[in-house]
């Protein structure tokens, strides 16, 4: 399904979502729940979710490009 979606549509969706989210302001005193360690988006430490070694197998998960994502460039 994703393959059918055009890039400009995705960009517009991103921008709209970002702006819409910015319109809602949740006061800090009501952010106790969303500040729990398993509610934040952490890129390091004990509360990182998801297996990062899956990029060993999944070409579409190696989102940094480069050697891992471009293994096939070497073989065609």
């Amino acid at each position: 399904m994703f393959a059918k979606v055009k890039t400009p549509v995705l960009c517009l969706t991103m921008a709209a979502a970002a702006m819409a989210a910015g319109c809602t302001e949740v006061p800090v005193w009501r952010q106790g729940t969303v500040s729990k360690p398993n509610m934040v988006f952490n890129d390091r430490g004990a509360f990182v979710y998801g297996m990062h070694l899956n990029s060993q197998v999944e070409a579409g998960s190696a989102d940094n490009g480069g050697a891992t994502a471009a293994g096939c460039t070497a073989c065609k």
Binding site: L10, M14, A17, A18, V26, M39, V40, F41, D63, T73
Partner: peptide
């Protein structure tokens, strides 16, 4: 580009978009 938002007292969202160009691809 990524944007992280607290949209309600119980929901936090993260949207990420990227474009990557690698030699030969």
């Amino acid at each position: 580009v990524s944007t992280e938002n607290v949209v309600s007292p119980t929901v936090r969202t993260l949207l990420q978009a990227g474009a990557t160009n690698t030699t030969g691809r």
